[in-house]
């Protein structure tokens, strides 16, 4: 049985996750399986449907931003989807790359708020908080992205659109190489059948990781990591009583995520060199001197 203080921590981290992320696995699965009362996502499977989606989804997401929560709009210079519209004159691959950046920036903002709500995180040295986010956000982002993916494609624009895997593969290189490794990871990761409560603890464990380069107070971060990992282990045992190897299998995914991020950073570096495209300042900060 799980001690009472562990149960409290599970609830706090799960609540922080549900509060801070606009999309979660339960919502995404409802949309992907067609079990929602909302309109079906607009399917983007070629350049024509992509261009149509740029016009309709941008308007839709913007309307939602103005009417909805301001939670994720802390960086005043970023409005996802608007970027896509403003860059319409540029070629499709580059525009898609910019849309991905806007979504990434939004998720990094949400992840920061989530991290701040993890008990103990804000007591860490501010430099260490920066380090943990710098190295953790992309691993966390690809974990969360898996919830929006199935073998055929990925949900975008808060579930308003669905980009097919085949369309992403058909883009010119290097853009075509961008998403396929994420789909492969997502297929393996989704077979673990985690729910949002499991994912919330896993994402917290990714962020609070004691072996990131340049940490000032390693023992304090390790102590926080140890607490979260123990809570994750106990939570998995109670939440998945018939899958006793889930915890070790999940820990193995941490290594896969590191590899995925290293590959991704290299690809972004290549795109920066060979394409006439810009990188958002927040993402520049994260990638700079990363690995």
């Amino acid at each position: 049985p799980m001690p009472a203080d562990h149960k409290v921590l599970v609830r706090q981290i799960h609540d922080a996750y549900m509060k801070n992320f606009t999309m979660n696995k339960a919502k995404a699965r409802l949309i992907l399986t067609g079990k929602t009362s909302k309109p079906q996502p607009f399917i983007i499977h070629n350049m024509e449907t992509f261009q149509l989606a740029e016009k309709t989804l941008a308007a839709h997401v913007l309307a939602e931003h103005h009417g909805g929560s301001e939670n994720s709009l802390h960086i005043g210079d970023v409005v996802p989807a608007l970027g896509c519209g403003m860059l319409r004159q540029r070629e499709a691959e580059a525009r898609l790359f910019h849309c991905c950046q806007s979504t990434s920036v939004e998720t990094v903002t949400e992840l920061t708020e989530f991290a701040k709500a993890v008990p103990g995180f804000q007591s860490l040295d501010l430099n260490d908080q920066v380090t943990l986010l710098k190295y953790g956000v992309y691993e966390a982002l690809f974990t969360l992205l898996a919830s929006c993916m199935n073998k055929d494609g990925v949900l975008v624009a808060r579930g308003g659109g669905f980009i097919t895997r085949e369309f992403l593969k058909s883009l010119r290189r290097p853009f075509s190489d961008m998403m396929e490794p994420k789909f492969q990871f997502a297929t393996r990761f989704n077979s673990l059948e985690l729910d949002d409560s499991d994912l919330s603890l896993f994402v917290a464990a990714i962020i609070c990781c004691g072996d990131r380069p340049g940490l000032v107070d390693v023992p304090l971060v390790e102590q926080l990591q140890e607490t979260i990992v123990q809570v994750l282990r106990l939570h998995l045992l109670t939440n998945h009583p018939n899958d006793s190897f889930l915890f070790p299998r999940l820990l193995q995914k941490l290594a896969d995520l590191r590899e995925l991020v290293t590959e991704h950073a290299q690809l972004v570096e290549d795109i920066k060199k060979t394409e006439d495209t810009s990188l958002h300042p927040l993402l520049q900060e994260i990638y700079r001197d990363m690995y």
Partner: peptide
Amino acid sequence: LTERHKILHRLLQDSSPNDS
């Protein structure tokens, strides 16, 4: 480190919507 990561730093220092 915070100097080289001004936006991350700012996001961390911003008062969280959860605090209010």
